[in-house]
């Protein structure tokens, strides 16, 4: 049986914050497709709605209008707990500030998604150790986040995002806290481990140094997608 061709399919997504005179239209009718096997970057100035859009895509924020299908499924229609569980199985997250639990070792941090999905602690940590090797952190499994450099912490966060083999990984500014060289290495790791034929990767970034890793780049301005470019070929697609 063939699965859906799109990892994400957003149509006419509108998101408002506040109400009355204080209402802010964060997303103004977003149409966007994220294809299977691609790394899509969302770029644009601060406040243009990038983070709101990936929050909607990842199912942690509800849009007010429009629909956003995740692997062909509208998860906003699922009951709350089922939707949370779906998110736990299908989506991985990488955050700008890493969000590693400071009192847990690198391996324990990486094990969290599997523990949430019900795997026993020892098995989850063993799997996490293996994933840390994939991101070149062998020997640092028992280190606490404070004992790791920024680049190492972000690699732990990447291992955590992929350890349960999610079909979609969303990243918010994954390299903004890192120097150029480290950011480059982190992106290399991310692209190697998170992109596959049945998976997709969406990255929100300001960091032009990493654009080269993208398959496509969607530019946002004022709550709208203004262009989607094929990064390598540099060709622009029509945006309604």
């Amino acid at each position: 049986m063939n699965g859906p061709a799109s990892a994400v399919q957003c149509k006419g997504v509108i998101k408002r914050y506040g109400s009355g005179e204080a209402e802010v239209l964060a997303l103004r009718g977003i149409d966007l497709e994220v294809r299977m096997g691609e790394l899509l970057m969302l770029v644009g100035p601060s406040g243009c709605g990038k983070t709101t859009l990936i929050s909607v895509i990842a199912g942690i924020l509800d849009q007010d209008e429009g629909e956003c299908l995740l692997f062909g499924q509208d998860i906003t229609r699922l009951p709350a707990d089922e939707r949370t569980r779906y998110r736990g199985q299908a989506i991985g997250f990488v955050f700008q500030s890493f969000n590693l639990i400071p009192t847990l070792t690198a391996a324990e941090n990486v094990a969290i998604p599997m523990l949430i999905n019900g795997m026993p602690f020892e098995s989850a940590v063993a799997e996490a150790r293996s994933r840390l090797r994939d991101v070149q952190l062998e020997g640092r499994e028992d280190a606490l986040p404070t004992q790791l450099s920024g680049g190492q912490q972000q690699r732990v966060a990447i291992a955590r995002a992929i350890v349960h083999r999610p079909r979609l990984v969303v990243c918010d500014e994954p390299t903004s806290a890192l120097d150029g060289e480290t950011g480059h290495k982190v992106m290399q790791v991310l692209k190697n481990v998170a992109v596959g034929s049945d998976r997709a990767l969406v990255i929100v970034t300001h960091d032009a140094r990493i654009y080269e890793f993208a398959d496509r780049i969607a530019r946002m301005e004022d709550g709208r997608i203004v262009s989607v470019e094929q990064a390598e070929r540099g060709t622009k697609e029509n945006v309604p």
Binding site: D81, T84, R85, Q89, F95, N99, I116
Partner: peptide
Amino acid sequence: RYFAVFKAMGATD
């Protein structure tokens, strides 16, 4: 913040 991370990652209420 960490509870929010768990929640985003699929931890139920």
